[in-house]
Design a protein around this nucleic acid. Structure first.
Length: 276
DNA sequence: CACGAGACCTGTTCGC
DNA sequence: TGCGAACAGGTCTCGT
């Protein structure tokens, strides 16, 4: 599931509830279960099981791709990585065979952290900054400005695609939204960051916010078996559209390997300046 | 510092 | 049909 818009969609569902499920604000934890121990990154399983019962959910927020639950004493952080998902089900229901950890509430509902590939991680800490401190700016936050982006780009000599996905540079973009933002800004994924002009940085800044906002508005992208009602996957400009015509100029979308994964782009709308 | 490769995992899809 | 390879929304660590 998980780039910024997908995590934000889950956060809103857990906080406000949906037609189908209630929100969990104010609920009290009764017990927890750790089905795949390596899912737990921070305290020991023993400490985790001992500290959670009795704690109340005070808030649910997000930072980059992290989902954070503020408890009476401490913070519970989730990172979904490639295949993680957080779903609420009634206490009497059987949990998925991919459930790696669950939290049972007195309200007779259970929050399941499902994760087929087992890459996801959970932390229980006293200070959330302990986990979040290395993250770059929040792309939809007020302190992320065109000027900040421009200065950041100048301070590195990196290929744009990989820099945008670097969470210490900017928090929240992954493979889908970085491809989409670069296409909207008409920048080739391999453009060197210090070659981007202030004018181009302005376009990129607007493109990043635009694709993330549209992703959130559409409740994220639901590709493959994970379905949350999001439909951003039907509005992708380039991601996974290899060989299909560019929605702007009709040129077939290309893809290239960039460090073990694919970057998708339109060779006509996103030319690479040759002097790089 | 920047980049590529390998590791961590399981499931699905593609090609022969 | 069967089987292995390639691929999947992420990040860490190591070597160059």
């Amino acid at each position: 599931m998980p780039e910024l818009p997908e995590v934000e969609t889950i956060r809103r569902a857990l906080r406000d509830g949906t037609g189908e499920f209630p929100g969990i604000l104010g609920w009290e934890i009764e017990s927890v279960a750790l089905l795949w121990p390596r899912t737990l990154a921070k305290p020991t399983p023993t400490e985790f099981r001992a500290r959670l019962p009795g704690q109340q959910v005070l808030d649910i927020w997000r930072r980059g791709k992290f989902l954070i639950v503020t408890l009476t004493a401490g913070y519970l952080l989730f990172h979904l990585r490639m295949s993680g998902d957080l779903v609420l089900c009634r206490s009497q229901e059987t949990v998925s065979s991919y459930c790696r950890l669950w939290i049972e509430f007195r309200e007779r509902w259970r929050l399941c952290f499902n994760d087929t590939r087992k890459f996801g991680r959970v932390w229980l800490v006293t200070d959330a900054q302990e986990v979040l401190s290395t993250l770059g700016p929040e792309p939809l936050g007020e302190s992320f400005t065109t000027q900040k982006l421009y200065e950041g780009l100048q301070s590195h000599h990196r290929q744009l695609k990989s820099l945008l996905m670097d969470q210490t540079f900017l928090a929240g973009l992954g493979n889908i939204y970085s491809d989409e933002a670069l296409n909207l800004a008409h920048l080739h994924p391999l453009t060197l960051s210090h070659h981007v002009t202030l004018h181009q940085a302005e376009h990129l800044w607007r493109a990043i916010r635009s694709v993330l906002q549209e992703g959130i508005r559409r409740n994220g992208a639901s590709i493959d078996w994970v379905y949350r009602g999001g439909d951003f996957q039907n509005h992708l400009r380039v991601y996974k559209r290899y060989g299909l015509p560019c929605r702007e100029c009709g040129t077939p979308i290309q893809r290239i390997r960039v460090s073990q994964r694919y970057a998708h782009f339109c060779p006509r709308c996103q030319p690479l300046r040759s002097e790089t």
